[in-house]
């Protein structure tokens, strides 16, 4: 187990694994996402109450799920950075923060566009929407803090502490709809219970969620490889890789 842990810390090893993994992540992820979206948009039945506007759920829920999961993964990486000083963990945080920012923005945007025809407003300062906005700012803060500090090691530690402080927001997002009165409805998808929709609605939603996770994995690989190259550009293995022309 510890040997695996040490291997995982080797940027060269990770670069090779990522190169082999990426085509699968991209192809399967895109296929699942597109299948979920096409099924959800054109074939799933409409909702008895909201009609067709509910079809926004097939991108709103995947982006909202991923926005929170990506942050949890960043928090795990932050603990690894702080305790084990593993460089690859810091590479992950830096590579993924901009992805999290875009995905969180998409979840807020699709939610606002969905809110207008169903609730009657684009935005309301309820606990769910506000805590999601805080998540957006946390991603922005991580990117800004990382850019503000020049020294690589200090930046890694400062960013890790910020990510950890922000992780308290995640249970707040998740339970906001249960702890307080909100306009946002409780979760349709729960890990432990049956989804509160029929299979012809939740299966495409699940496909889209899985597809989003795989595409996120692909994005993380591409961006981590970029960051690894930037850090290791003077090393022998990078020279061999770059001059051989296969990457």
């Amino acid at each position: 187990m510890w040997q695996f842990f040490h291997k995982l810390g080797s940027p060269k090893w990770f670069y090779g694994i990522a190169t082999r993994l990426m085509p699968w992540l991209l192809v399967i992820g895109t296929a699942l996402l597109m299948a979920g979206i096409v099924w959800g948009l054109a074939f799933a039945p409409k909702d008895y109450l909201q009609g067709d506007s509910y079809r926004i759920i097939f991108i709103h829920v995947p982006t909202a799920f991923l926005a929170q999961s990506a942050y949890i993964m960043m928090a795990v990486a932050a603990v690894v950075t702080l305790v084990w000083r593993m460089k690859l963990a810091d590479v992950f945080v830096k590579a993924v923060a901009p992805v999290g920012l875009v995905i969180t923005f998409l979840s807020l945007f699709t939610g606002a566009v969905w809110g207008k025809p169903t609730w009657g407003t684009w935005w309301i300062w309820d606990a769910r929407l506000t805590s999601m906005l805080i998540l957006l700012f946390l991603y922005g803060g991580v990117i800004a803090l990382d850019r503000a500090i020049n020294d690589e090691k200090s930046a890694a530690r400062a960013v890790a502490v910020l990510v950890l402080v922000g992780v308290v927001n995640i249970p707040i997002i998740k339970y906001s709809v249960e702890w307080w009165n909100t306009l946002h409805q409780p979760a349709t998808f729960k890990l432990t219970e049956k989804p509160s929709m029929p299979a012809e609605m939740w299966v495409p939603l699940l496909l889209a969620v899985l597809g989003m996770y795989l595409i996120f994995g692909w994005l993380a690989c591409v961006r981590m490889q970029t960051e690894i190259l930037a850090r290791e550009q003077k090393t022998r293995w990078v020279k061999d890789l770059v001059m051989a022309g296969r990457h």
Binding site: P45, K46, M201
Partner: peptide
Amino acid sequence: DQVLAKHDENYMPPEVAE
């Protein structure tokens, strides 16, 4: 001066609701 609609997390086809 403002009324917003709140819906629950249950989605279903119209026939099922019926």
